[in-house]
Structure formats: structure tokens, C-alpha cells
Amino acid sequence: MNRNILKVIIPIILILLLSIKALNIGSIELSFTEMIEMLRGIDDKQYAIVRITRVPAIFVGIICGAMFAMSGVLLQAVMKNPLADPSIIGISGGASFGALLAVSLFPDLLIMKPIFALIFGVLACSIVYSLAWKGALNPVRVILVGIAINTLFNGLEDFVSYFLSAGFVMPVSTVSTGGHTSQSVNYLIIYFVLALILGFCMYKKCNVLGLGDHNAHSLGINVDQTRLIISVVAVFLAIIPTMYIGPISFVGLIVPHIGRKLVGNNHKYLILYSGLLGGFLLLFADVISRSIIYPIEIPLDIIMALIGAPFFLYMIRKGNQYVK
């Protein structure tokens, strides 16, 4: 079989297998025929529980993973830096501070958490871009300012946590694919379709930037404007999953690297392919987080860091493209 087809089919099969596994983590276990019946919508109390709690989590895992990964590809293209990911432009720090603030200010209003995450995520990356702008958008300046702003928001988060810890116990981490209704998953699917279209539309722009600013300019491309447009799409792609499951940085960081190894640096393929790999990776981490010490669910960001960090180190040690 054609190697390129295999590269697409294998992650799809793995996603399907993981989805089946994910459907069966919990007190209710379904056989294969029961699973088919449940998916066909046959009325049953057990099936209803699985449909309401587990199916949305699978969709959330796959879609959020895909969006984080695509965001990482776009940011790495814009910054021309293999270390760029959503946390670099302040989204993660801002969004997690926003979420903490919402939980502490309005402990009874859960709806405020994603709203605050969105507001502070956008606020943080607006600060990063406006401070980095100095007549032109210099990628190195964006990264340096991004690190500072992310650290600032992490500090603020610790500060708020410290003051609150005397009053009541804060959840250590709430990064999880769970707790979503099928209606909120429907919205997520709409965002995802939009993200796929917008992300794919960016491929030419990313490729032109790959030729270097000077060549892009002489092809009539406004380099700063192009960077800004791709960044806005990348922010959208990162904010939505951050709102749904919380900030996870490793997906956006490592998946583009794996994607590049498998399909190369042509963004026509890399953007969507990284989405596919990102969906797989987050679902994989989700399955582990739910099953490894069942019935306790380990926060997803912890699992992602435990998988991501060693893998990233392995890639740096093995590859030589980062140390020329």
C-alpha cells in the first residue's frame, strides 16, 4: 500500500481503537454489539449514561487535540521557531489564570470559567503582540515577550492560589475532557469545522513565510500582516480547546515536529495531518489519565507532560536539525 495512505490510515485506526477503549472506561462495560446498539441510539439506561458522559469526552479529546496541534503548526510557521506553541503567546498562562479567577470569584457559576479563560487568554496574547510590535513583528521579540507574559500570568495564578488556599481548597488542576454536554460538543464541532477551513486556508501563507521574509516580500506579500492573520487563526485554534479542557502545552509543541518527520514541511499537508496526530495524542493521554489508576482520573495536563517531555527530549537527541 502507498506509504502516504498508510500514514493517514494508521492514526485513524488508532483513534478508532482508542475511542472504543475510551467508551469502556468506567463502571459500565459494553460489549461490541452493545456499543453498536448504543451508537445507534437504542434506548437503555446504561447506554444513556455512556452517551451522556463518555461520548462527549471522546469528541472533546480528539477535537481539542487536533486544534492545539494545528495551532502549534501555525505558530511555529509564524515564529519560524520550533519551540513556539500556544503557551508562547500567552494563551495558556492567561487562560489558566482566568479560569482560576472565575472559580475563586464565582465558585457557584461554572459558566464563568470558560468565559474568563477566553477573556484572559485573548488579553494575554494581545499584550504579547502589542508589546512585541515595534514597527514590525519580529518573531524573536514575540517569543521573548511571550515567555515574560506567560510567567507573569503564572505568577498571578500562584499569587491568587496562595491567598485563596487559606479560605478553601482549590482544585489542584481541572484539565479534563469530561463534564461536557452533547450540546456543548455540537458547538465544539462547529468551531472545529471553522478551524479546519481557516487552518487549511493558511497553508499557502505559511509556505510563503517558509521561503524567508525577503522572498515573501518580493512576491508581494505583506509579511507583518500575514504573520498577524496566521496568528489570529492560531489564537482561535488554541483558545477554543483551552476553554473546553484547559491549557495543555505539549500537544501544540510536539505534534508539529512528529508531523514534519512524517509528511515534511509543506503546510498543505502538515496542518491537517498534525490535526489528525493531535487528535490521536490527546485521546491517548485521555485514555491513560482515566484508566491508569481507575477510578481516579489524573488531570490530562499531567499525563500530557509525562508523555510529552520525554518524547520531546528523545526527538531533540535523535534529530540534528535543531543544532546546526
Partner: peptide, 16 residues
């Protein structure tokens, strides 16, 4: 459309 450029060093895109 009037002026094009060729530079001494150019980044390229793998697999292109």
C-alpha cells in the same frame, strides 16, 4: 508584478 528578486541565501521548504 514589476520587480522580482533573487537573494544569496534562501530558506526552502522540505518535501517541495
Amino acid at each position: 508584478k514589476k520587480v522580482s528578486a533573487v537573494y544569496q541565501q534562501n530558506s526552502t521548504i522540505e518535501e517541495m
